[in-house]
């Protein structure tokens, strides 16, 4: 353990993002610049004169973290400093919604940086409002009757843009996440890791179930693990026996009022997408 983050952080009990943040620096080490938007990850960035990071860090705005990465990455290139990692750690709101334009631009320009999205499927820092990444049927304070629309697939958008490295990951399979961070570092260009990250208070789940839920999301095919290097898809965790979506949903109070047909559509979409990934892998 590199110990590049303070031990005593005021994240919630069982926070998936905290494990992601620590794991990133575990892999990348001290020569890393961390950026966080105003979000739960800003808890690490601190308050007043105090910070949680022992590496250099920058607090971005909500919508432009990838643009800060662009400027930092290009400045490093201009200074011939090639051994410093630039990492954005942003939530799903700052990534798939308000931050999408800056992310898309930075990816298109091909800057070298690593973008880790911790996807907790809603705006959690402001108190559980829906995001584009909230799944069908999930309760949030702005979808009190459950979200009607399916989750936005940012990874496919980035694949369509031709990003050199893109991956999904889950805190439930943290070794797989770390391997992907290590791969991302070797990419000479933008690398994006979309990481499933349960939020116990936001999901109305028990803190102790964070890892269990994060594993189940993968094992139900709701959140398949794969990576694509230069567009070549490889499923990094093959699901032999599909786990029960019902079990996954029951661990989370946010799905308490999900309708049967919504469960059905989640299951069908999950199966179809997983099969599509296997097919593109075969090609």
């Amino acid at each position: 353990m590199a110990d590049l983050v303070s031990k005593g952080l005021t994240t919630c009990e069982g926070c998936g993002m905290e494990l992601i943040a620590r794991s990133i620096l575990d892999v990348l080490g001290q020569n890393t610049i961390m950026l966080t938007p105003p979000s739960c990850s800003a808890i690490l960035t601190g308050f007043g004169s105090e910070t949680g990071w022992k590496v250099p860090a920058f607090q971005s705005n909500l919508e432009n973290i990838a643009a800060y990465c662009s400027g930092i990455s290009v400045a490093l290139e201009h200074q011939n400093k090639t051994d410093i990692n630039v990492v954005a750690l942003a939530g799903d709101g700052g990534t798939v919604d308000i931050g999408l334009q800056a992310l898309s631009g930075a990816v298109e320009r091909g800057h070298k940086f690593i973008y880790v999205c911790y996807d907790n499927e809603a705006y959690m820092n402001t108190g559980i409002q829906r995001s584009g990444s909230t799944p069908v049927g999930a309760w949030t304070t702005t979808t009190p009757g459950g979200k009607k629309e399916p989750k936005k697939n940012i990874v496919e958008m980035l694949l369509a843009q031709g990003i050199p490295y893109v991956a999904t990951a889950s805190v439930g399979y943290i070794d797989d996440f770390k391997k992907k961070v290590a791969k991302a570092r070797e990419i000479d260009g933008p690398a994006y890791i979309h990481t499933f990250s349960p939020c116990p208070p936001g999901w109305r789940a028990k803190p102790r179930d964070t890892i269990k839920i994060a594993k189940l999301a993968v094992d139900t095919n709701l959140f398949p693990l794969f990576e694509a290097i230069d567009g070549e898809v490889r499923v990094t965790r093959k699901v032999r026996k599909v786990a029960s979506i019902k079990e996954y949903l029951e661990l989370q109070g946010r799905f308490r009022n999900i309708r049967d047909e919504e469960v059905e559509s989640l299951a069908t979409d999950a199966e179809n997408y997983y099969n599509k990934l296997l097919e593109s892998e075969a090609k």
Binding site: E63, A67, Y68, S70, G71, V74, L76, A102, R109
Partner: peptide
């Protein structure tokens, strides 16, 4: 280095990033 950004918002953002890097 010229960064042909995708918006003015990102233009100023990117130079803030480059400025804190000491350029």
């Amino acid at each position: 280095k010229y960064i042909a950004v995708e918006s003015e918002h990102s233009a100023l953002t990117a130079v803030v990033g480059a400025s804190v890097m000491g350029t």
